[in-house]
Design a protein around this nucleic acid. Structure first.
Lengths: 191, 191
DNA sequence: AACGTATGAATGAAGG
DNA sequence: CCTTCATTCATACGTT
């Protein structure tokens, strides 16, 4: 289910300003600790959660890039010969950029980490390892059976029986599949 | 160039329901053969490939875990009372949840193997209800550090960060400029 | 009211 | 498994 039902977070002007300034300062993909700092700070200006910060940077970055790409695409279409020295063709992955360091006072760590891309400190909890016989490497299982969509090949042992008549075959409360009103890539053909 | 250009798979409601039910039944990381079965079955409800199944479980598991982790993390962070030297790390990994064995008929292998894999960490499903104001489901890396180690301060060199302790976890009671009612207006105009 | 835009949220797909 | 990217959905707002 997409989107949070009702109250979607909305940045206050102060929060937005801070976020934008941080972005301008070079922060692109803050990690957990950075997000926590940012959230803590921004919470002084209104209710906010970590996920909001996360999503904000995620979206902002994506859309900035999208605009850029669009622009470039259009340019490329019109002209592809005369370009100024300072060509508007920045690498898409610009993590290192002259930061304004506006928030150096408060978010030095954030900025610093953002620039150096330092340590993505791992999870404190020791992750569980595989129980017994598991491969050390994660060989994508589906590669092993790349034989089409398996749609043609019925299971050798037991053919796909339908244990699912229990299900209503129609979402009672779900309205969120893929079928949208506008351009839908995936036609949720309820075949 | 990540992602497939145009047609990204999107689960039909039936497929999604089945997948969720299987997840609920204990399936976490199906291997090639399991994926094959699942794919074969799901293909009856729409176009689907093995990799879709693979990715679905991968993502679902990861995101479900994050939700959990965050919940537990916050808990752990808030009530820091009864953590003696006996258990500095609360057993996040609970136990084997009783599988529903709904798919035993056809996916016996899946379920069986799934049961073996279960028991790493999972608290069943409980309820997925979200408190309206406090939390919401998120989906990404931020809570990756919860044990107060990173939050308080991983001093890279010198941290001028001030009294931004771990986030208030409570709305500071400030005027929520954003949430007037439900359809609030984001005053983005200040931009 | 219909329509386009901006943006929070969610998720499929990869990369590593 | 973890992190990141691209796309998409849903909705609020402004415009015509």
């Amino acid at each position: 289910m997409p989107q949070t039902p009702s109250t979607r977070w909305c940045p206050t002007p102060e929060q937005l300003m801070i976020l934008e300034e941080m972005y301008r300062s070079g922060v692109r993909t803050p990690n957990a600790s950075q997000i926590q700092q940012i959230t803590a700070h921004l919470s002084l200006y209104g209710r906010i959660e970590g996920k909001n910060v996360f999503y904000w940077f995620q979206n902002h970055k994506a859309r900035e890039r999208q605009k850029l790409r669009r622009r470039l695409g259009r340019q490329h279409q019109l002209l592809h010969q005369s370009e100024g020295p300072s060509s508007p063709t920045p690498p898409l992955h610009n993590q290192t950029q002259p930061p304004n360091l506006l928030y150096q006072g408060c978010f030095q760590e954030v900025i610093t980490q953002g620039m150096n891309l330092v340590g993505k400190l791992e999870v404190g909890e020791g992750q569980e390892e595989e129980p017994a016989a598991s491969d050390a490497v994660y060989t994508q299982p589906w590669m092993t059976m790349m034989d089409g969509s398996a749609a043609t090949g019925p299971p050798p042992c037991c053919r796909p029986l339908k244990t699912l008549d229990l299900f209503p075959t129609k979402s009672t409360g779900m309205k969120d599949e893929c079928s949208s009103s506008k351009s839908s890539s995936c036609s949720t053909s309820t075949n």
